[in-house]
Design a protein around this nucleic acid. Sequence first.
DNA 1: ATTGACCTTATAGTTACTATATAGTTTTAA
DNA 2: TTAAAACTATATAGTAACTATAAGGTCAAT
Lengths: 134, 134
Amino acid sequence: MRIGQLARSVGVDTQTIRFYEREGLLPPPDRQDNGYRIYTERHVERLAFIRRCRILELSLAEIHELQRYQGAPHQPCRAINTLLDDHLAHVRSRITDLQVLEKQLTSLRASCNDDRDIGACGVLEGLSEESMQQ
Amino acid sequence: MRIGQLARSVGVDTQTIRFYEREGLLPPPDRQDNGYRIYTERHVERLAFIRRCRILELSLAEIHELQRYQGAPHQPCRAINTLLDDHLAHVRSRITDLQVLEKQLTSLRASCNDDRDIGACGVLEGLSEESMQQ
DNA sequence: ATTGACCTTATAGTTACTATATAGTTTTAA
DNA sequence: TTAAAACTATATAGTAACTATAAGGTCAAT
Ligand SMILES: [Zn+2]
Ligand SMILES: [Zn+2]
Ligand SMILES: [Zn+2]
Ligand SMILES: [Zn+2]
């Protein structure tokens, strides 16, 4: 199959497929005489795997690492689980950070209603206060 | 004061200060005969404002918009509050997304212990399942 | 013969910095 | 006094994961 069909069947852009190839996440496929890329079912699987990883917001570097593990099926899998634990830790820490942010923003927003002049806007005043530092 | 002192007093890098100047967030300061930038207290205030906004993860574009509002103190402040509401909405939506992600990752992680071969790793199997799509 | 859909490569833009290279200036210390 | 350390300047490239644009080649159908 050609790149357009692969793209449609997995739900990514053709540009992204070429980008993954350049980045070493997708093996370079054979070419037709005219230079067009020809993909196989194995490419579909591989690209779908990448997409599932990306949905979980694994980085391309992490996906690359997972792919290296896949090539050595008789090693212990601890490294994979560790990779996932690390990623999960990042996600959780980001959630915590954003929750702090959300509280600060909510409180800042509560310091103004919509009916003031900019010169008296509670939001702008809050952002200008030294106390808000850090 | 010179750029290094401004940087230390607000807690940003000198490069960042020059970057903000190029981006139009900090007004270009006067220069000494040797070309060194000279900053005033107003620059300290302005940079501190930017930093407070950045701590709340407002984008440079949003900060720019806030600065434009600051220049017109007799307009109604609704636009400012709207800007903050939009930003808050993004933060909240990101939290929700990450919470979904966290559940998926936790469940995926639970599908493996550390004592398998990679060929039997529950995490890798989960990532390879079509059912995981979207 | 030409339109349209598809494919190719190369290059630039996105965000908010951060790092590097190269060079000129000021301050401190030997 | 001179040499090193610390500071400043500009310009350019790198980061992450695409996305957009340009300029052009290929193929099927009208
Ligand atoms: Zn990760
Ligand atoms: Zn207001
Ligand atoms: Zn925002
Ligand atoms: Zn495992």
